[in-house]
Amino acid sequence: MPTLSMTVNGEQVSGEVEGRTLLVDFLRENLRLTGTHVGCDTSQCGACVVHVDGVSMKSCTMLALHAQGTEVATIEGVANGDTLHPMQEAFRENHGLQCGFCTPGMVMTALALVKDNPDPTDAEVRHGLEGNLCRCTGYQNIVHAILDGAKAMREGAANEGES
């Protein structure tokens, strides 16, 4: 079997995979990083979104071997120890979830969106969530959370600039 090497949340990992192994299965089964979810397995729901070299992708719709040599970021790498990332904190504050199943993909999508567009409008957030399904909330609080999270991240960056 081919050997796969990549960086996941800053740590070098490797393992043997079949050609047909999906990235999400490698993360969940081999690395036991089960925060990345498989919701639909048909490329619709976005619960499996991770970042590959800083770009959001559906890890159920790419092969593990596609990530050879890349830097992968999953939801497990977002918080700083016990301190939630401002975007995660914003989801908590705004009750941007109910069952929480879609939340890892939502947070990873939000972080990718804010990276490209630090001050998005409501409409831009909704457009950016087209690849992520939530069956509980009706999205209202998710959109609020992302707008608040983006604001907190802008303020955090500004404070860092001052100090």
Binding site: S43, G46, V49, V55, S56, M57, K58, T61, M62, T109, A112, L113, G128, E130, G131, N132
Partner: peptide, 9 residues
């Protein structure tokens, strides 16, 4: 086309 993640690949 599709959604942001699909457009990225």
């Amino acid at each position: 086309i599709g959604d942001p993640h699909v457009r990225n690949r």
